[in-house]
């Protein structure tokens, strides 16, 4: 199966980790059964977003046929600075999406910068993937409340609510057409229920690959244990992520767009 993982991390120095060569990571991911991965910074979620955006872009530069990098910004930097970095990472670094982690980055979804950041991301065609499933800053309905205000931005709950809040995530997904669930984290019972109750074209496969050992194979095992059909797996694991982040014609070059081209 052509499986794209919509939730992986570049290992860094935070959380007791250590940086790894991208070739190693790619080999590990491919051996586990992936044909591509959306990849986020780890260190940039706890410190120096800009520097870590650069590190991520540089790391995957020669492997853009496999990795789709998602950068991050910190809403506490303020609306102007955060949007400047958002535009820089899109146009200079060629990032394909925005990753936000309200828990680690320590912001509430009600922070005044959040909505403008999401609005701008949507205008630039960047999907926004949130960590979710953990209170007090990252619960599904908190994220859904902002998603509702930016209907043309594609918003992804990166953990589909986890086991404790997956029912909230289901309700959010059914209510908001711009809200997607990445099935990274829920156990196979909740996972089967999510697939049964949500529109299948708004679900994604994810594993937290790169963060912790053997997580991709466990995520794949959960999908099989949840009894999903091959067709469902194909939709979730391949078609949906390709629709949100289309394959670029020449993956080695960052897009040569300027601001005028996309307003």
């Amino acid at each position: 199966m052509n499986l794209i993982d919509a939730h992986t991390h570049l290992p860094g120095r935070s959380f007791g980790g250590k940086p790894r060569p991208i070739a190693d990571l790619r080999r590990e991911f491919a051996n586990a059964g992936l044909c591509g991965a959306w990849i986020f910074t780890t260190d940039g979620l706890v410190m120096e977003a800009e520097k870590n955006n650069n590190i991520l872009a540089e790391a995957v530069r020669g492997d853009r046929d496999f990795f789709e990098p998602f950068g991050t910004v910190n809403p506490h930097a303020g609306e102007d600075a955060a949007i400047r970095e958002l535009e820089r990472m899109r146009f200079e670094l060629g990032m394909r999406g925005l990753k936000l982690h309200p828990w680690l980055q320590g912001f509430s979804l009600t922070h005044p910068s959040v909505k403008p950041i999401l609005q701008r991301a949507g205008e630039m065609g960047l999907p926004v993937l949130f960590h979710d499933g953990t209170p007090p800053y990252s619960h599904p309905l908190q994220i859904a409340a902002v998603a509702e205000q930016v209907p043309s931005t594609m918003v992804i709950l990166g953990h589909a609510g986890l086991d404790e809040a997956y029912e909230d995530a289901i309700l959010a997904c059914r209510r908001h057409p711009n809200l997607f669930l990445c099935l990274c984290g829920p156990s196979c019972g909740p996972l089967a229920e999510i697939v049964r109750r949500c529109p299948v074209d708004r679900l994604l496969f994810g594993s937290d690959g790169g963060f912790g050992s053997r997580v991709i194979e466990t995520a794949i095992a959960k999908f099989h244990a949840a009894g999903l059909s091959q067709k469902t797996l194909q939709t979730i694991g391949c078609e949906n992520p390709r629709r949100l982040v289309p394959k670029q014609p020449r993956r080695t070059d960052p897009p040569a767009q300027t601001h005028q081209h996309e307003t």
Binding site: C188, G189, P190, K222, A226
Partner: peptide, 8 residues
């Protein structure tokens, strides 16, 4: 089980 599965 049934939240998770022996297969996993």
């Amino acid at each position: 089980w049934p939240r998770s599965s022996p297969a996993v």
